[in-house]
Structures are given as C-alpha cells and as structure tokens.
C-alpha cells in the first residue's frame, strides 16, 4: 500500500513542479528561493498534511487490529 502511495505522490509532485518551472531564461537551482519563497510554505504544508494523513492511516490500522482481535 505504501508503494502505491509513494508512486502517486511522486507522479503528482513532478507534474506540479514541471508546471511551475519557467520556460524562458537560464535554469537555476534556486526553485525553493524563487517567487517570494512561496515554495517553502508549500513544502511545510505538504509535510504537515503528509504527517497527518500518515497518522490517520496508522490509527486506521490500529483499529483494524483491534477489530480482528474481537
């Protein structure tokens, strides 16, 4: 299940970041510092959301274990 999740996330991230890249000018390795540093905020929110969703999945698994025991 984790595998599916990771691949889905990777595909999404590449799709979005390719959209965000500018098509003109020289490519520089400072994507995280461009556009008023909004990417930093996006990264922070993504980590928070991923952690919360992972937490939800783990709670779900614990409940499933309890259900199987009963």
């Amino acid at each position: 299940m984790r595998k599916y999740f990771v691949t889905a996330t990777m595909v999404l991230f590449t799709a979005v970041s390719s959209l965000a890249q500018s098509t003109s000018g020289v490519e520089m390795a400072d994507e995280l510092r461009s556009s008023g540093k909004i990417y930093v905020v996006v990264a922070v929110i993504t980590i928070i959301l991923l952690a919360l969703i992972g937490y939800l999945f783990s709670i779900d698994r614990k409940v499933k274990k309890l259900e199987k025991k009963n």
């Binding site: 599916y4 965000a20 909004i38 996006v42 929110i45 969703i53 779900d60």
Partner: peptide
C-alpha cells in the same frame, strides 16, 4: 488495500489541492 483506495485518493487530492492551490495562477 483494495478497500482503502478512496483513502489514498483523498490524500492525493488534498495534497494536490495544496500544491496547485498555492502555486497555480
């Protein structure tokens, strides 16, 4: 796994909405 597909869909959609919501025009 099979009955969990909608949970993964939910996660992907929410993360997608943050990315496109913050970066999109």
């Amino acid at each position: 796994m099979k009955e969990n597909w909608w949970k993964i869909l939910a996660s992907v959609l929410v993360i997608y909405s943050v990315w496109s919501g913050m970066l999109g025009s």
